[in-house]
Design a protein around this nucleic acid. Structure first.
Lengths: 332, 332
DNA sequence: AGAAGATACGCAACCGGTTGTGCTATAGTT
DNA sequence: AACTATAGCACAACCGGTTGCGTATCTTCT
């Protein structure tokens, strides 16, 4: 640390060779004698030399950074989902000598992302958003920068990765239907959000595959607030449903509260199923049927995908990660 | 976007002036005619020119990046705390034309941080960690890079910012003591973590200020697992305590579970108080006494502090943020 | 009107690397 | 022995900005 700052020129001078040679010794590219190479590498180890990423970047028009773009909206940041994802991204990025530049965007603005991309501070972008139709995707397409989205989008020829929400919810719904549920309600949030949209699609698919007809009057996709959710539960109960699937576990908490208030018990009077998005239901009694998935894996797969894309490799545009359909917390 | 990439030279040539002048027009430094300046600025707007941060950085030995360092350990990432903090950091950084480079560190290694600092990819560091004694702080001191820590550290002459956990817990304890609690237990996690350590200190201070003697046999600072916590609760109950303060709300959940199991009710048989670290207690019935603080503010203050430090300004080493002691969720 | 000072701008070096090209000595071929 | 191929290395241009210094033009003052 004492050495103020040591450059490639210093090394060249010290070793009596040209900086070209030093550079080649480090990168391993170009023709270089093994003995010389060894000398340089040793010198570098000894003196704890780290090449300036700025200079390197300037010369190669690369930054060795990737952008990690997540929503900053308060409702989303309550969930540990993105934070877990980020660990996966971080691991893979670090392993590939890339650093992560953070960008927080909001439902109605992504200036932070624009800045980073237009300034060319990154070589690629991982866009982790929740909206199905998302203007920032269009921006990225325009810009020409390599990117992958976490969460499905309707845009074509965009690299995207997601958990198989459709498949998981289809499976869950099928299981419940086969268990004999007659009136199976779905209570979910805004369909502009990928997760809700997908889970509803899975719900419908299950009916289709079993050749049954879903009852649209007990599908509630506007449960964005506690108030709405409670209204929907009441309505469902007055419709005498025997089971409710919640598209996320925050909704599930409200549903359970309301059911308890009305004097009903789970699972005797009514069954409840949900997805494991956050730990709020972790210690709930009785344990709730909920499906697991692994955000960290989602992150690392996304990063792996992006790095391939940045290398110019041919990568399939879409990848789905399967849920762990083992009902870990279920007693039902 | 069509223009492949436009450089400062292009602009100079196009406008028939030197790149020096263009550079000065942009930065505003150096003597330049207002008319010329206007021309350049207009051209830039028109052609959506963004100077290369790499070139700029290389020339000035600055990166315009700051590192955001957080723990990647799974127990920590469950909490939305750091994510909320990050929003504050992001806002301030963006407003000051800085970007955020992410670094995930672990209790037993901070290679990611080392890499970023040694590679000079950042101009400053915000270290958001939970350990009281933290080797990465020593590393940062050694390196000479400007940094601030979120969370108090015992190191001297280190810029640090934290919520006033001591003050808040002191106040909470005092209130409870003044309400007449005779046997007031404290159940907390490992004292190597800043928060636990501070809250215990506040607890003790309260007794001191009221000239009372704390009972060490009902202070349990090893509640790091559910098992330990439950054992501690049992022990406290057998000691016939009339109130329990939990150092965090995850502990509080376990405490409440156990109390319920033993057939006791809150707050009639026993009172429970905690801190609002995550939303797990949000919908608990009955609402639990818990103190609020604002992670986002913590983040933005930390970033503001860092930027001052980077500018070389004189900044007090320590700053405490006060809690909102309004007992929002309390009915007790 | 001439000198002094201020203003506007250009020249060229520099930040710290990468890389295409060319030169030289050695090894390999016939 | 003469000729080519190749390995090992250096030169110098280049990436895209910033900045100290020098110069030409314009004010201003006496």
């Amino acid at each position: 640390m004492a050495d103020v700052k040591i450059t490639i020129d210093d090394i060249a001078k010290e070793l009596g060779i040209s900086k070209t040679t030093v550079s080649r010794a480090i990168s391993g590219k170009g023709r270089i004698g093994p003995a010389t190479r060894e000398r340089v590498l040793n010198y570098i180890k000894e003196h704890d030399y780290h090449p300036s990423p700025l200079a390197k970047g300037l010369a190669q028009s690369k930054t060795y950074n990737i952008a990690w773009v997540i929503p900053g909206d308060s409702t989303v940041t309550e969930l540990p989902f993105f934070q877990k994802c980020m660990i996966g991204v971080s691991d893979i990025a670090t392993a590939n000598d890339h650093d992560i530049l953070l960008s927080m965007v909001y439902e109605d603005n992504f200036v932070s992302l624009e800045r980073i991309v237009k300034n060319r501070k990154v070589d690629g972008v991982i866009l982790a958003r929740t909206l199905y139709k998302d203007p920032s995707v269009e921006f990225l397409i325009e810009s020409g920068i390599p990117f992958v989205t976490i969460g499905s989008t309707p845009y074509k020829n965009v690299h995207q990765i997601d958990n198989d929400h459709i498949g998981a919810c289809k499976e869950l719904t099928e299981i419940l239907l086969l268990k004999g549920m007659k009136k199976l309600a779905l209570i979910g949030g805004d369909e502009n959000h990928i997760v809700n949209r997908s889970r509803k699609a899975g719900y419908l698919k299950a009916f289709e595959s079993l050749d049954m007809e879903p009852d649209n009057s007990i599908i509630y996709m506007n449960s964005d607030s506690k108030v709405n959710t409670i209204r929907n539960v009441s309505d469902a109960l007055s419709n005498e449903v025997d089971c409710i699937i919640c598209t996320d576990d925050m909704i599930c908490v409200y549903v359970l509260d309301e059911i308890r208030k009305q004097g009903l018990t789970v699972p005797d009077d009514i069954r409840i199923a949900s997805f494991y998005d956050s730990p709020v239901l972790e210690s709930y009694q009785p344990p709730i049927t909920s499906l697991d998935y692994d955000p960290k894996q989602l992150g690392s797969e996304a990063c792996t995908m992006l790095i391939s894309v940045m290398k110019g490799e041919e990568v399939p545009y879409k990848k789905l990660l399967h849920y762990d359909v083992t009902f870990k917390r279920s007693t039902q």
